[in-house]
């Protein structure tokens, strides 16, 4: 149990998927200009990550990993090289399904998240989390925690970035540095803040 709490805190703060692994930068820079959209996209990422990471774990465990096809009598088959294309297909399919389900059952949620869902299919953070879970040999429970925690970490990073950028409107940024340049530097400073948690172990 403590191990799982530690994993959660680690994926939110120290191993923040955006600030220490640089995943999901494109949408982070593009969408953090506006608070509402930033939070909307953040929640959509949490949502999609919590679903795709466990599903990809099952796909990898029972279809792709070496010897996984034992149940159909193919003991020596190793399909793990197909993981990139399979994961991205699974993610795209899930995003599509989630979009349709939300559209059908919760129009208000669809209004809030709908426009972001297609964007998310190609967000590096989603694929990255699935690949990390394979590389680090997480168990199923750990994968659920890791997927959710990474999403929360991403949400926190983009929400705080949007807040800082609102303040930055009144700041006097040197010519040439405004826009993308200063955003990168602010992200760096924020990453330093998140790294302060790295001494904490549970």
């Amino acid at each position: 149990m403590e191990n799982l709490i530690g994993l959660f805190l680690n994926s939110v703060f120290v191993g923040n998927i955006l600030l220490s692994y640089f995943l999901g930068m494109c949408s982070f820079v593009a969408v953090s200009k506006n608070m509402d959209t930033a939070i909307g996209l953040g929640f959509a990422v949490v949502f999609v990550l919590s679903i795709t990471a466990p599903v990809n774990w099952l796909v990898f465990k029972y279809l792709l990993s070496p010897g996984a096809l034992r149940w159909v009598g193919l003991e020596s088959v190793d399909l793990s090289f197909l993981k990139f294309i399979t994961f991205i297909a699974v993610i795209a399919a899930i995003v599509q399904m989630v979009e349709m389900v939300i559209d059908r059952y919760s129009p208000t949620l669809y209004m809030a998240l709908g426009v972001f869902l297609p964007l998310i299919a190609v967000n590096c953070a989603i694929l990255g989390a699935s690949l990390f879970m394979v590389e680090r040999n997480y168990s199923f429970i750990e994968t659920i925690i890791f997927g959710f925690g990474s999403g929360v970490g991403w949400l926190m990073a983009i929400a705080s970035m949007a807040a800082i950028r609102i303040k930055m409107r009144y700041a006097n940024v040197p010519a040439g540095l405004e826009g993308f340049g200063i955003t990168m530097i602010m992200t760096g400073l924020m990453a330093m803040g998140f790294m302060l948690f790295s001494g904490i172990t549970l």
Partner: peptide, 13 residues
């Protein structure tokens, strides 16, 4: 990690 962000920012400048 933070150093990479800051270097990119300065290179853009």
């Amino acid at each position: 990690a933070p150093a990479a962000f800051i270097i990119i920012g300065l290179l853009v400048w």
